[in-house]
C-alpha cells in the first residue's frame, strides 16, 4: 500500500489458519493499521491481493467483507455515540438477523459474554476507555465473524483490565473464531498468540511462534531493542 511517496505496506505476505490467534506487532508507524485497512476493505491496496476463505476479497467494500465473515475493530474507538450499548451491538447483529427481536436476543447474548450487560443502557458517548474497547469487540462479534481482527484492543488498559481482555480473547477463540490482533502490550499478546507477524517500516521482518520472535535479531533491533519499552499510547477519543 502506497500513500504518495510512502510505502506503508511493502511486500507483506503471510497466512492465517482457521482457529489461530495471530499477533501483529511492530513499532509505531510500521503500517499495522494500514494493513488492517487493506484487509477489511477500508483501503484499496495499490498492489497485491487479500484472500479470505480461498476467495479474492481485494477491492471489496467494507460491508461486503463484513458479510463474508471478517470483522474488525478500530484503534481509535468509535462508539455510536447517540445509541446505547445494546443498540450499538444490535447494529452489528442486524448483519445476520434482520428482525429486531432476533437481533436484540443475539445482542443480549453477546453483551453477557463480553461483560457489557450491566452497561447496556449507557450511551456510547458515556463510556470509559476500557468499555469502549470492549464495545468495539462486542459490536464486531455481533456480525458473527469467522475472522475477527482487533486493532490495539488492549492499549491504554490497566493490568487488571488487560487480564480481562485476554480472557475475552480466549473465550472468543474457544467459539471457533480466528483472531488477528495488533498489540503493543507484549505481556498480553505473547502468551496467547500461536504466531506473531512483525512489521517494520512497512515490511514484514519476521514471522513465527512468540518464543522465536522474542529472540529474533531483526525484531530485537527494530522493535524490542528500543529498550523493550511497552508503548501505551493515549487515546483521546
Amino acid at each position: 500500500m502506497r500513500f504518495g511517496g510512502l510505502l506503508a505496506n511493502n511486500d507483506v505476505t503471510f497466512d492465517i489458519y482457521p482457529g489461530e490467534i495471530v499477533g501483529l506487532i511492530g513499532p509505531n508507524g510500521a503500517g499495522k493499521t494500514t494493513l488492517f485497512n487493506c484487509i477489511s476493505g477500508f483501503l484499496r491496496p495499490t498492489a497485491g491481493t487479500v484472500l479470505f476463505k480461498g476467495e479474492n476479497i481485494t477491492g471489496l467494500k467494507p460491508h461486503q467483507i463484513c458479510h463474508r465473515g471478517l470483522a474488525r475493530t478500530f484503534q481509535i474507538t468509535q462508539p455510536l455515540r447517540d445509541m446505547t450499548v445494546l443498540e450499538n451491538v444490535m447494529v452489528g447483529t442486524f448483519c445476520r438477523y434482520p428482525l429486531t427481536s432476533q437481533a436484540r436476543a443475539k445482542a443480549i447474548e453477546i453483551l453477557k459474554m463480553t461483560g457489557m450487560w450491566a452497561k447496556r443502557h449507557q450511551k456510547g458517548s458515556e463510556l470509559t476507555i476500557p468499555d469502549r474497547k470492549r464495545l468495539e469487540i462486542a459490536r464486531a462479534l455481533g456480525t458473527e465473524p469467522d475472522l475477527l481482527i482487533l486493532d490495539e484492543a488492549m492499549a491504554g488498559l490497566n493490568p487488571a483490565e488487560i487480564h480481562e481482555a485476554v480472557e475475552l480473547v480466549k473465550t472468543i477463540q474457544a467459539q471457533g473464531i480466528t483472531l488477528f490482533i495488533i498489540e503493543h502490550v507484549m505481556e498480553a499478546i505473547m502468551p496467547i498468540a500461536d504466531r506473531i507477524v512483525v512489521l517494520d517500516a512497512g515490511r514484514l521482518i519476521a514471522e513465527g511462534p512468540p518464543s522465536e520472535i522474542v529472540h529474533n535479531e531483526r525484531v530485537i533491533e527494530a522493535y524490542l531493542g528500543e529498550g523493550r519499552h511497552v508503548k501505551r499510547k493515549e487515546h483521546t477519543s
Partner: peptide, 23 residues
C-alpha cells in the same frame, strides 16, 4: 430472561491469506 446459550458453529475454512505491497 433471554438465555445465554452461545452456539459456536463457525469455522473459517481457509481464513486469510494476505499478500500486500510490492508497491
Amino acid at each position: 430472561d433471554i438465555g445465554t446459550t452461545v452456539t459456536a458453529d463457525t469455522g473459517a475454512d481457509d481464513a486469510v491469506r494476505g499478500s500486500l505491497g510490492q508497491q
